[in-house]
Design a protein around this nucleic acid. Structure first.
Lengths: 186, 186
DNA sequence: CTCTGTGATGACAGCATCTGTTGTCATGGA
DNA sequence: TCCATGACAACAGATGCTGTCATCACAGAG
């Protein structure tokens, strides 16, 4: 008989998502999350550096994208390599239902939306060295990554409107939209 | 003889910038900022909703950009209207020296960098209705604004490397870079 | 000149976030 | 059997942020 229930981190994440949904992020205290998961407030901070991170743990997406870019065809232009990586992003996505709940909770709280932006910026930053290995200067690489992030956000917004489309197709649509938007000719 | 020194908000902003520079954002408490400015901690929160906002007060840039976009030539394509607005952004900038100090302090603190991103996202959000008045759908407008923000960040990074260039010229360079990056032909 | 309202500020109490530290106890290996 | 380790609780404390009320110079009304 184990001294403690297993998967303390998972229990904290599920309790947090549930409480954020029912009473909102601001009105939920860390102590309450921990109690719901059968732990103390102090233990919460052993698993997550701060309250917001309970919904952002794990760097799978970042690692996946970096790996894809590094493995991409060297002949691809930098933005194309990033878009190719993005098209495979759903390989690390969890269940759509979980993601939808998470997205809604994040959208409902400014503090969580803020953290979401930072996470995307972190991914853009992580992609800089990967592009650097393809001969792109850091500042330029960061710019290209920012554009790719914008495309990713556009694909995600399309996904919310059409939850049954494949992420790859949504990225294609967003990329096509980018071309229209910057095309110099009317 | 006035009961209190004037420009309490300005004193707080200057004290905060100074303290953040010398000892870092995290190691500076709100009480210390307030004491340095000759006020109490409670008074700090009458001027700023939270500690980070002391470096982000005012919406002049956002209001300026929205106004510029609304006043732009209706024949301009949406992204061109945003870039035209960006080219005039330095009209609301303060002294370069102040901005440089501020940018460095923000870059040195994750918490401030986070807030900086949110402020840019707020500007992008505020530009959506302005583009809407030009017939652009909200989600698409948000995408175009995100691209313009990426261009603005690129222009700012170029500015740090070349502080004497005009912001307008830097925006032009960044816009040209955007065309190169997305151009479908090699 | 006095009265009174207004507005900026101080003083104080209180909750929540986050951190440092130490004690406890089941588990697993020597 | 004994001890090292890991997972957690318990406690103390700094800091961020909020609510509330008192204070007092100043301005305008009379």
């Amino acid at each position: 008989m184990p001294r403690w229930e297993s998967d303390a981190q998972g229990r904290l994440e599920r309790a947090a998502l549930e409480l954020f949904e029912t009473q909102g992020y601001e009105r939920t205290s860390v102590a309450q999350i921990a109690r719901t998961a059968g732990l103390t407030e102090r233990s919460f901070y052993r698993y997550f550096p701060d309250k917001r991170e309970v919904l952002f743990a794990g760097n799978e997406l970042e690692a996946h994208l970096v790996g894809q870019v590094e493995a991409a065809d060297p002949g691809l232009r930098p933005l194309e390599a990033l878009l190719a990586a993005l098209r495979t992003a759903d390989e690390v996505f969890r269940s759509r239902e979980f993601l939808l709940r998470r997205v809604r909770v994040i959208a409902a709280s400014p503090a969580l939306a803020e953290r979401d932006l930072i996470k995307l910026a972190d991914i853009a930053e992580a992609l800089v060295p990967a592009l650097g290995r393809r001969g792109v200067e850091p500042d330029r690489a960061r710019f290209i990554s920012d554009v790719a992030i914008a495309v990713s956000r556009r694909a995600t917004s399309r996904w919310l409107a059409d939850p049954d489309a494949t992420f790859s197709a949504l990225v294609d649509q967003a990329a096509a939209e980018l071309c229209e938007v910057v095309a110099p000719q009317a």
